[in-house]
Design a binder for these strands. Structure first.
Length: 397
DNA sequence: TCTGGGGTCCTAGGACCC
DNA sequence: TCTGGGGTCCTAGGACCC
C-alpha cells in the first residue's frame, strides 16, 4: 500500500460536538459551562471540562463539580444534521474521506498539493469553512500516518491546528504519555505504569518481545509499531459498519420476564427498522447483558440466512433471553441490548410491516411496560427508544 | 467514578471439514 | 485405529473508542 512520505493525512475532530451545537443554537449558552444529557454526561463544553466534567460521568457528580452548569437534553436530530453538513465540506475538500464517528474523520489530501496547495493550507481552510458555514469549532491534526494525525489533533484540541512534519515525528511523539496511544486504555495504561513506563518513548525503547509478553501478541505488536510511528493503514472510503445494535439501561429496580421481553421486542424492532432503512441484513443476533454488579455478558446465535425481518431476529433474541433468565434472576439485570452482526450488503426488499394490525403481543408488551413506567408516553418512549416522531412499531406475531 | 448508547478489533476454544 | 496439519465458522469475553 502506498504511504506518502509527506504529511498528507488530516484527522478532523469537532470539539465537544454536542455541546458546541447547543452553544451555536442558543446564544445564552455561549461562554458558559454546558452539559448535554441528564442522568449521564453525553458531552461537556470546554467551560465544563475545565471544571473536571467528563463525558460518561454520572450527572450528579457532574453537577457537584460544576453547579452552575446548564444541563440540556440531547437533540440527536440537530447533531446528525450538523454532522452531515460538516461531512459535506469534508467531501468537498477531498473525495478520500473516512468517517470514524459522528464527529471525526480522516481526510487524505496527498493528491491535492499541486491543484490546491499544501496540507497545512488545506487544513486551515477546512477549519475556517466549517466555522463560517456550520458555526462549529473543529481541530485538525496533520501527519504522515493516520495514527499520528489523530494524536496531533488530540494534542491540538480545542479549536486548534497542528502539523507534524515527517522530520519531527519521533520528537513530537516520544515525550507524550502512553495514554495518547490509540488503543491504550485504563487496563493497558495500568500494566505499563506498573513497569514504570509512562511515555511513548519508553514504550518504543522496550522492544517488541517484552511488549508482547506484557500485553499479548496483538496489543504488543500494535503498540510497538505505533510507538515507532509505523502505521501503514490507508484512508479508506466507504467503510460500512459490521453490526447494528440498540440497548437500554434498566437501573436497579427489578424487572419481570414480561418487562424484559417487551423491552427486548422494542430493541429488536428499532434495530431491524434501522437495518431496513440502510438496506442491510444480518445473520448473528447478539444479546448483551449487564448484571447488578455491572459485569457484562453476551450471548449470540447465528442464523442460516441473513435477514432484516423482525420475526426471525426477534425469535432468536427471545430464545437467548429465555435461556439467560435464570442467571438474570440470580444476578439482577441493569442493561439489556441487542445487536445484529455479520451484516452483509445485499439490498433488502421486505413488505412494510406497518400494514398489519397491532397484534395481541404488542398490547401485552405495552401493558407490561406501562405497568412499570406508568404513563403511555413513557411507555412509547421505552418501546421506541428515543427516536421522536416515529410511529408505534407493530411487532410480528 | 456507582455508570449511556453506539460501535471496533482481538483472542481463544471447540466443532467441523479436508 | 489412537492419530497430522490447516482452515473456517461459531461463540464468548475483553479492551478500547467516541
Amino acid at each position: 500500500m502506498f504511504v506518502s512520505s509527506d504529511a498528507t493525512i488530516l484527522h478532523a475532530d469537532l470539539d465537544a460536538f454536542y455541546a458546541s451545537v447547543e452553544q451555536r443554537d442558543d446564544p445564552r449558552l455561549r461562554g458558559r459551562p454546558v452539559i448535554v444529557g441528564g442522568g449521564v454526561v453525553l458531552a461537556a463544553s470546554y467551560e465544563a471540562k475545565a471544571r473536571g466534567v467528563r463525558s460518561a460521568m454520572g450527572g450528579r457528580q457532574a453537577r457537584q463539580l460544576c453547579p452552575e452548569a446548564i444541563v440540556v437534553p440531547p437533540r440527536m436530530a440537530a447533531y446528525t444534521a450538523a454532522s452531515r453538513a460538516v461531512f459535506e465540506i469534508f467531501r468537498r475538500t477531498t473525495p478520500l474521506v473516512e468517517g470514524l464517528s459522528i464527529d471525526e474523520a480522516f481526510l487524505d489530501v496527498g493528491g491535492l498539493r499541486r491543484l490546491v496547495g499544501p496540507p497545512a493550507d488545506i487544513a486551515a481552510r477546512l477549519r475556517r469553512e466549517i466555522r463560517e458555514e456550520i458555526g462549529l469549532p473543529i481541530t485538525v491534526g496533520v501527519a504522515r500516518t493516520k495514527f499520528l494525525a489523530k494524536v496531533a489533533s488530540g494534542v491540538a484540541k480545542p479549536d486548534g491546528l497542528l502539523v507534524v512534519a515527517p522530520a519531527g515525528e519521533l520528537a513530537f511523539l516520544h515525550p507524550l504519555p502512553v495514554e495518547r496511544l490509540w488503543g491504550v486504555g485504563p487496563v493497558t495504561a495500568t500494566k505499563l505504569r506498573q513497569r514504570r513506563i509512562h511515555t511513548v518513548g519508553q514504550v518504543a525503547r522496550l522492544g517488541e518481545a517484552t511488549l508482547v509478553s506484557l500485553l499479548g501478541a496483538g496489543a504488543g505488536r500494535h503498540l510497538h509499531a505505533l510507538a515507532h510511528n509505523r502505521d501503514p493503514r490507508p484512508v479508506q472510503v466507504g467503510r460500512r459498519r459490521g453490526s447494528m445494535g440498540a440497548q437500554h439501561a434498566l437501573g436497579r429496580t427489578p424487572h419481570s420476564p414480561a418487562d424484559l421481553d417487551a423491552i427486548l421486542a422494542g430493541l429488536v424492532d428499532r434495530v431491524t427498522r434501522r437495518m431496513r432503512a440502510a438496506s442491510r441484513s444480518g445473520r448473528t443476533v447478539m444479546l448483551r447483558l449487564r448484571f447488578g454488579d455491572y459485569t457484562r455478558a453476551t450471548r449470540s446465535h447465528t442464523l442460516a440466512k441473513a435477514t432484516a425481518d423482525t420475526t426471525p431476529l426477534l425469535g432468536a433474541a427471545r430464545a437467548l433471553l429465555r435461556a439467560a433468565l435464570p442467571e438474570l434472576d440470580r444476578r439482577g439485570v441493569t442493561l439489556i441490548g441487542v445487536s445484529v452482526g455479520n451484516l452483509d450488503d445485499s439490498p433488502v426488499q421486505l413488505p412494510l410491516p406497518f400494514e398489519r394490525d397491532p397484534g395481541a403481543e404488542l398490547d401485552a408488551a405495552v401493558d407490561a411496560v406501562r405497568d412499570r413506567f406508568g404513563s403511555t408516553a413513557l411507555t412509547r418512549a421505552v418501546l421506541l427508544g428515543r427516536e421522536p416522531g416515529v410511529e408505534m412499531p407493530l411487532l410480528p406475531d
